[in-house]
Each structure stands twice: as C-alpha cells, then as structure tokens.
C-alpha cells in the first residue's frame, strides 16, 4: 500500500479506526480473525465503519469477512454481510492445492499474477461487479467502495490493484 502511495497503520483497537480514509482487511484465517475481533470489541465497529461507506479492500480471508453468504466456515461464523456474494472457505482445497495463475482484470488486457492460498471460491457474485477472473470464474468483485479479492495481490509484486484501491480511496476522501 505504501508503494501505491498510501500512508498506513495497523488497526488493532477500536480507536485505531478513527480518521481512516480506507481500510484493508487482509488474509489470514477468517474464523480466527472474526473471533479475535469479537473478543476485542472490534468486530461491530469495523462492520459499522464499512457499512457507513469507509472504502474497504478485502483479500482472501478479508473477502470472506465481507461476504453475505459463507459456506464451510464455522457453524456460527458471522460475516459482515456487506458484499452481495456467496463464498466457500478453502474452496480450492488444502495448502497442497494452493496455486499461482494468470488472471484477467476487467478493462486491462495485461494478465495479473494471482497467488491463491487456501483461497475461497466465489460461488455467486450477486449484484456486484466482477473485476477479476481466473479461467472465466470470478475471483475479484467490487460493489460501491468495497473491493474484495480471493487472491493475494500483496504477494505478487504487481501494484495495479493496490493503486486502483488507493484511487478509490482518494475519490472518496476528496
């Protein structure tokens, strides 16, 4: 994000959310992240901030957190229910099935290097706009000021999607 021109800080407590122009919900384990956010009282504040229009980029586990419909998570795993999509956790399988592949981005002819790690599968894109595809299947979506990707652009070294998010944030902030 810094390479794409943004100043960043870690959000670990509710107070850290104040005065942010944009939020990145990164990869990790969505179940673990949800639980820890609930324990620290961060869960409701983050959900409210995103609902109130804070531009947000979710990658991998972050995509799952933003999704309205989650399968193969914990039975009581709540989502923020912000993006009108359905995702299946670890939809591609365990770690040995993690992979790299070239992706097609909407409105950009150059392939994007996608890194998928125990990634979710997007089973339904609802009313969202598809911004990235792998062999025709949706792997990145956008709805208003929220972007979500099943893969990890931060591991590929290609800054195009980071820059697109920074532009989105600047558009909102100005």
């Amino acid at each position: 994000m810094a390479a794409a021109g943004a100043r960043t800080r870690l959000v670990r407590l509710k107070e850290d959310l104040a005065e942010l122009d944009g939020l990145v919900i990164p990869g990790g384990e969505s179940t673990t992240m949800t639980m820890l956010m609930q324990r620290m009282g961060l869960y409701d504040s983050v959900r409210q901030a995103v609902r109130d229009g804070l531009p947000t980029l979710g990658t991998c586990a972050g995509m799952i957190l933003l999704a309205e419909r989650i399968s193969d998570g914990l039975p009581d795993q709540p989502g923020f229910g912000i993006l009108d999509i359905a995702v299946r956790r670890n939809g591609y399988g365990r770690q040995v099935d993690s992979f790299e592949a070239d992706l097609e981005l909407a409105g950009d002819e150059r392939p994007f290097p996608g890194v998928f790690i125990r990634a979710p599968i997007v089973e339904d894109t609802g009313s969202t706009e598809v911004i990235a595809r792998h062999e025709g299947d949706p792997v990145g979506v956008r709805q208003g000021s929220v972007m979500a990707l099943a893969f990890h652009p931060e591991l590929s070294g290609d800054l195009r999607l980071h820059e697109e998010f920074v532009h989105l944030v600047e558009g909102r902030a100005s």
């Binding site: 040995v96 992979f99 890194v115 792998h134 591991l155």
Partner: peptide, 22 residues
C-alpha cells in the same frame, strides 16, 4: 494444462505470511 502452478515457493511461503502475528 491451463497454466496454473501448485507448490511454488511463493505459495508455500505465502501461507506462512498469512499466519504472521499468530
């Protein structure tokens, strides 16, 4: 056949990146 690659070093080291802070 479709050009996707499994078991690359990026994918192996990438999982550890996701565990960071844990």
């Amino acid at each position: 056949g479709s050009g996707s690659q499994k078991g690359t070093f990026k994918v192996k080291a990438g999982l550890a990146e996701m565990l960071k802070g844990g």
